[in-house]
């Protein structure tokens, strides 16, 4: 018998494909020579997507001269050539923290929201023709999805990734052994320069060294013009509201003692929250190298929050998410 949060949540993303179809990945191949970050640069090139008209220059392919536009051009002696976007397939890698802490709270597990986020991103990326890989942060397992927008295939891949941690440690709530034991080789292969790396985690690692190791990975990833977005799943408000105040026998991932007896008060909760925030600030300081963003998904201070509401509020309403995906047709 497991204690809580056993296995991956079976619920599929409660957003219909028709709604996701209205979005496309906003990312394009970024210029390697520029500073990585949120500013994407378009590059002229060979593709079917029109970019602009410009005067003909020697060496241009004569086939790109737009004769009709040249006739309307104000300088009759000048030809106008049509230029096209230099479109390169974007690589998106989504790392999911499948640790025991992600399987809480029971009413709205963080892992479930992470899976939904990943499923949405995979679908939109696939629809945009971009390549996606899923990565289990705990086991290091990488599942390639390519440019598939098949939601059934995406869910199966997510199940494989989600189950990786549960299988490896028997589904216990232990938070031991995360990044420190992970083989990063597969991730490095799946994460070419210029790609986007989404890390879905709560940063509740038992060992501070693991946190710093992940921060170092994030920092290193940015050296290859990669944009790293850490999505921080924060259910603190919801969980503390549910347990209330008073004498409690605390249980949860990472609790080494048989029983952790505490008297929960506002002061104690504020103190612990301060420790968590301080850890995250240290992570930010260690991880930030120009191409890093941390995105917070917060659970409301309710006893029984609705996971769907949490997802919709953050996925369709957050600024950074809007920089990842955009309604189709928008520029």
């Amino acid at each position: 018998m497991t204690r809580s949060g056993s296995g991956a949540t079976p619920e599929a993303l409660p957003v219909p494909s028709s709604q996701l179809d209205r979005f496309r990945l906003r990312l394009r191949q970024r210029d390697r020579g520029t500073v990585a970050g949120a500013h994407l640069i378009r590059q002229r090139g060979q593709s079917l997507e029109f970019r602009e008209f410009r005067p003909y220059l020697p060496g241009d392919d004569i086939r790109h001269v737009d004769w009709r536009a040249s006739a309307r051009h104000h300088r009759r002696d000048e030809l106008v050539v049509r230029t096209f976007e230099h479109e390169v397939q974007t690589r998106v890698v989504i790392s999911i923290d499948t640790g025991a802490t992600m399987r809480l709270p029971e009413v709205a597990p963080k892992l479930q929201l992470a899976r939904w986020f990943a499923e949405a991103m995979c679908y939109i990326s696939g629809r945009s023709g971009d390549s996606v890989a899923l990565h289990a942060l705990d086991s290091g397992q990488v599942v390639e999805l390519g440019s598939s927008a098949d939601r059934w295939r995406i869910r199966r891949a997510l199940q494989r990734v989600s189950a990786a941690k549960a299988t490896s440690n028997g589904g216990s709530l232990s938070a031991e052994g995360r990044t420190g034991k992970v083989n990063w080789t597969a991730l490095e292969r799946a994460l070419p320069p210029g790609s986007v790396w989404l890390v879905l985690t709560d940063l509740y690692f038992a060992d501070e060294a693991d946190v710093m190791a992940l921060a170092a990975r994030v920092r290193n990833a940015q050296q290859g013009s990669r944009w790293v977005v850490v999505v921080d799943f924060d259910s603190w408000a919801c969980e503390t509201h549910r347990v209330g105040h008073g004498l409690r026998r605390l249980d949860g991932p990472g609790v080494s003692a048989p029983e952790l007896r505490v008297k929960l008060t506002s002061g104690l909760l504020d103190e612990v929250k301060g420790r968590i925030d301080e850890r995250k600030r240290r992570f930010d300081r260690a991880a930030a190298a120009g191409g890093y963003d941390r995105l917070r998904w917060t659970w409301p201070a309710e006893a029984d929050p609705t996971p769907t509401a949490i997802f919709r509020e953050h996925f369709f309403g957050q600024e950074i998410v809007r920089r990842l995906v955009m309604p189709d047709g928008a520029r």
């Binding site: 204690r3 809580s4 025991a100 802490t101 992600m102 399987r103 809480l104 709270p105 029971e106 963080k110 938070a175 709560d202 509740y204 038992a206 259910s235 603190w236 969980e239 503390t240 347990v243 008073g246 004498l247 409690r248 026998r249 605390l250 249980d251 949860g252 991932p253 990472g254 609790v255 080494s256 003692a257 029983e259 952790l260 007896r261 505490v262 929960l264 104690l268 612990v272 420790r275 968590i276």
Partner: peptide, 14 residues
């Protein structure tokens, strides 16, 4: 009476 409470952040109470 120590009521059992499960917290994902329990490790921070150690």
């Amino acid at each position: 009476n120590f009521r059992r409470a499960v917290l994902s952040a329990a490790l921070f109470f150690r």
